[in-house]
């Protein structure tokens, strides 16, 4: 039916796929990284604000608008664990913190959630990486992770 070398090629491909799948399962199981979490829509997420739960846990409710993020500057201490809840007030925007693997779409009528731990101090840019009109290239906000003294 099929030449045996073709069969071998399919077999090797299947093995590589299994290895990749195992690596993905491993890294997701160990809560190292994951895709965005699914949050049912709720109007309360659409008002931009920052909640401090305790000394190192923050909730950021970010709303992307034509052509800035609100809040546009987020101050958190080093070692902070931040839950980002992202939605859009108009068209589809992107919400990308490249250095920390935060890669989400801000969609009207949808709430996106991901959690990230800021272990190193510094300014982390939040870039809009989905075309959202003429001001798209100006859309960038900041997470400022500075020394224990917040401000």
């Amino acid at each position: 039916m099929l030449d045996k070398y073709e069969g071998k090629a399919i077999g090797i491909t299947a093995i590589i796929i299994m290895v990749f799948l195992f690596s993905l399962l491993y890294v997701t199981g160990k809560q190292k990284t994951d895709v965005v979490e699914c949050v049912p829509y709720d109007k309360t997420y659409t008002t931009p604000r920052i909640n401090q739960i305790d000394s190192t846990t923050y909730q950021v409710f970010a709303v992307a608008k034509m052509w800035n993020f609100e809040p546009s500057q987020i101050y958190v201490p080093v070692g902070a664990e931040v839950d980002f809840f992202v939605t859009s007030g108009d068209v589809v925007h992107g919400f990308n913190i490249a250095e920390k693997n935060v890669n989400m779409m801000a969609v009207y009528g949808g709430i996106n959630k991901t959690t990230v731990k800021f272990t190193e101090p510094g300014i982390y840019k939040i870039t809009c990486h989905e075309y959202c009109g003429v001001g798209h290239q100006n859309m960038q906000a900041e997470v400022i992770v500075n020394y224990p003294n917040n401000y």
């Binding site: 829509y41 709720d42 108009d90 068209v91 949808g110 009109g133």
Partner: peptide, 20 residues
Amino acid sequence: DVLRLGGPGAPPHLPSSPTP
């Protein structure tokens, strides 16, 4: 999922203006 989890629909926007 999309029908169950989604919120309200969106009004149209022109690429050139933020107002719907």
